[in-house]
Write a protein that binds this DNA or RNA. Structure first.
Lengths: 332, 332
DNA sequence: TACAAAAATGACAGCGCTACCATAATCTAC
DNA sequence: GTAGATTATGGTAGCGCTGTCATTTTTGTA
């Protein structure tokens, strides 16, 4: 079995076997237009007997309207995008749409190349993370006759549809919370803010609010690479080496925060009395740690669902703010 | 901007604009067949000027050979499948292939429905998790003229290609390790073994080896739902309530083990002197915990890469064993 | 210069389906 | 029973490409 060559059954063969015309088979299969019950039974019997599987490539070409939805996401290992995809994929599936995806690794140039490659499939919609795209990406998307959905960010001007929440506000709320709890010497541990622009917006909002509250950020440690538990741990270690007198640290997300948490556990730093930790994302794991995380829970699955829903119903251009929820955990 | 209707530029229009025939444009764009440098420049200029994006739907239909690869995976939230997808997607992309996916939620009936829907796209290959499929799924796949790749499991008979490692052996090795370290009263905490058949195979191998070694499994706690950190924590708690004198616990994977680890931290159970913990997967997070995890590291990204490679080069049917690595951590 | 071989090119028939139109069969109301 | 709807059905022209083949142009060689 090196390569199987049986030419696939075609609609024409089904039509012949059922003794009806091609268009009748097509109508029956799509349950569209009118046909008698007797005809339907004959067609379905032939379909069953021949093991016919409709060719959607041909169907899409003939009908112009595509049922593909293209996702161009920064990462799959990041649970955030996996959750969005999961939310979207069930909704899409229920509406006979199909998800296609590509991973950019947070590289705008790759995003551009991948969007180009995706558009070649003439998708019904292209889903992207956030607002920051190259000029080329924007130009291509604008020229394409498909819906554009920007996800997980609404701090900016949408190209078409946008579903998510304000990262800037999330940063502000986090800062407010810490100030309100009387933490005064606050630091930040994060990952590449240039690439993950949503994290950058949170950071900006966070710093603004701290400054406005009279307790500007004391120190920060930014890891050049991607966010990870390990980088969170290393980041906190370095930060505390430089600034041992911090009383709270804001992390770019819960993965990083978990690393910080582990660092504290390993060094016997008691949380939150010696050091408070605040994260972002509301990962499940943060609810199971000995001390539940103080963090912001984001509507990731819902973002995917809503985005998919808007696409299948071809909703007018709009920005949907799904908000977020601040979780008062035990770490800050 | 409710719906954009600009009819897309077609190859015929490019041909006209460049003053050449359609086939010439096609040849230039695919860099296949012969054409002069002058012609190439004229064509590329026209492509640029008109903003032409080739229509792969039409291309695929015309050339029969599809460049789609369909993934039907149990879950996206499970980092295991996200890693496989990530590994595969970069390799596929380099070879001008495109990944399409659908999520089964570990439901074989859904798998069958999704495979049917995937086959309608006439993919070059269908990638599935493991060997356990419904009869209908197998029949459809056999009838389809595409490659079939079963991932992350080689304990069984492959339909075509299979890439992964032996889960049964992984269970055996884990048991050996614990026995060798003189743990005698061993328990198990896991999730639904019927659905996650790979976890079931590990469990079986584990138990066999323990019995053969004279220290059969003392007790087990199996959570009906999916694996998660939270269920790991709850599972260990229940297990220890029933069997407080265990000295080691094997978890169905690192997520569950992490939950167990947190339970021990919270209850002040010292690891590994009071209780040893052994996991499975080799997640990054297990390397950053205050005590690195004793676990088995699986080649998830490599599985995706190899699977994709075999598909793009249309390799003959075979089973590729990528093995796994036992990590001697500090928890067992 | 002549002639074969190689390179470059265009015309056109599909790929398998859907959309549209024309026709045939059946039904309705008087 | 008949005109006028209504429902059912088949024929066929594309959708936008690719692959084949025939034709034209260029190149190489004696």
């Amino acid at each position: 079995m090196d390569f199987k060559y049986e030419t696939a059954v075609t609609l024409a063969q089904v039509a012949e076997a059922a003794g009806v015309g091609e268009s009748t088979v097509s109508r029956v299969l799509r349950n569209h237009g009118s046909f008698s019950g007797k005809t339907r039974d004959r067609v379905m019997a032939a379909v069953e007997r021949l093991g016919y599987v409709p060719n959607r490539i041909a169907g899409t070409l003939a009908s112009a309207g595509s049922r593909l939805v293209a996702f161009v996401v920064p990462s799959l290992s990041n649970i955030v995008f996996a959750d969005v995809l999961r939310g979207a994929s069930s909704t899409l599936e229920q509406n006979q749409h199909q998800a296609v995806f590509a991973v950019t690794d947070y590289d705008p140039a790759r995003e551009e190349a991948l969007v180009a490659s995706m558009l070649a499939w003439r998708p019904a919609a292209v889903m992207l993370a956030g607002y920051e795209h190259t000029q080329g990406t924007v130009r291509m998307l604008r020229a394409a006759s498909c819906r554009i959905v920007e996800l997980l960010d609404i701090d900016g001007v949408a190209l078409d549809l946008a579903v998510g929440f304000s990262n800037h506000d999330a940063g502000c709320r986090s800062a407010h919370y810490l100030l309100q709890r009387h933490y005064g010497r606050i630091g930040y541990v994060g990952h590449d803010l240039e690439r993950d622009t949503r994290a950058g917006k949170r950071y900006a909002g966070f710093c603004e609010t701290l400054s406005a509250g009279g307790s500007p950020l004391v120190d920060r440690e930014i890891h050049a690479g991607a966010s990870s538990v390990e980088n969170g741990r290393l980041g906190l270690e370095r930060l505390l080496t430089r600034s041992p007198d911090l009383d709270a640290v804001y992390f770019s997300n819960d993965d990083m925060a978990l690393g910080g948490y582990f660092h504290c556990l390993a060094r016997g730093i008691s949380i939150p009395s010696q050091l408070a930790i605040f994260g972002y994302n509301g990962l499940d794991i943060g609810r199971v740690t000995p001390q539940p995380f103080s963090t912001i829970r984001t509507p990731r699955v819902a973002t995917g669902q809503v985005a998919a829903q808007l696409v299948v119903e071809n909703a007018p251009a709009q920005v949907v703010d799904l908000g977020f929820e601040l979780i008062e955990g035990a770490t800050a």
